[in-house]
Design a protein around this nucleic acid. Structure first.
Length: 234
DNA sequence: AAGAGCGCCAACCGCACTCAA
DNA sequence: CTTGAGTGCGGTTGGCGCTCT
């Protein structure tokens, strides 16, 4: 078993003080990100490296947007969640200025409930059986109708993770995994993981990093079969 | 006014992955 | 090939503030 990353008994835990924030910000401005293990000592912080990294990524980074999510951001989260499952870092990568933690929290506190209220199961984006909607289209069939019992029982996060620059999202822990000829195909998506474009210098750089799907710089959600959630969301 | 309940969000924890030695 | 350090990710927790009773 791996030993814990923070063995030191004298490391601070809990909320960060303004002084700690300042020290961390100053240090990273001076030396850049990385080498989180040695950073705390070098920066004069009584924190573990992990804690520093999290604080920087989720709170101190200068390009963070913060504040309420816009409607189009909500839409995008729902779409991406339908496609990717609980892969928050991937989803956040498509939302400039947003962190995985922020997206995850927003999903759990707002969007999940929103979908549930609309009669949609937020786990698989299917229309929930026990709460049919009155305004449901008559011939509507969920694009996730091929979900097996096993998939229903196994949440997305049970799927093996895969990471890397050219990480193809072929193991998306969503309802589209089995129905690969379903919505994913309809969406014409060829998702690749890349550096979030907010961290890139400009749009050209973004293109270079192949964020796009099918040689476009934006995800193309002009699908012939929108997600069930989105059909009802508008 | 005060206590209970609830929601939000920052932070922690544990596991998985990568890569160098 | 193996091992372990470093890092990233997703799930969970805990504290704070707001609302309700």
């Amino acid at each position: 078993m791996r030993k814990p990353c923070c063995e030191k008994q004298d490391t601070n835990k809990g909320a960060w003080s303004k002084q700690e924030d300042q020290k961390l910000t100053d240090y990273i401005r001076k030396h850049g990100e990385g080498c989180w293990r040695t950073l705390p000592q070098a920066a004069g912080l009584l924190r573990c490296g992990k804690s520093c990294r999290l604080r920087w990524i989720n709170y101190l980074r200068p390009d963070l947007k913060r504040g309420n999510f816009a409607e189009d951001e909500e839409d995008l989260i729902i779409k991406l969640h339908a496609l990717l499952g609980n892969r928050w870092s991937l989803i956040a990568g498509r939302l400039p200025g947003r962190t995985d933690n922020e997206v995850k929290n927003y999903w759990n506190s707002h969007l999940r409930r929103k979908l549930i209220n609309m009669g949609i199961d937020p786990n698989n984006h299917r229309l929930s059986n026990n709460r049919p909607r009155l305004d449901q289209p008559p011939n509507f069939t969920s694009s996730c109708a091929t979900l097996s019992d096993h998939q229903l029982k196994c949440p997305p996060h049970h799927h093996p993770k895969s990471r890397g620059e050219n990480d193809q999202v072929s193991d998306a822990g969503s309802c589209f995994e089995e129905d690969s000829s379903g919505m994913a195909a309809d969406l014409n998506l060829d998702l690749k993981i890349s550096i979030p474009f907010t961290s890139l210098a400009n749009a050209e750089e973004e293109q270079k990093h192949n964020i796009a799907c099918n040689s476009s710089t934006e995800l193309d959600f002009s699908a012939t079969t929108p997600s069930p959630a989105l059909l009802l969301f508008r």
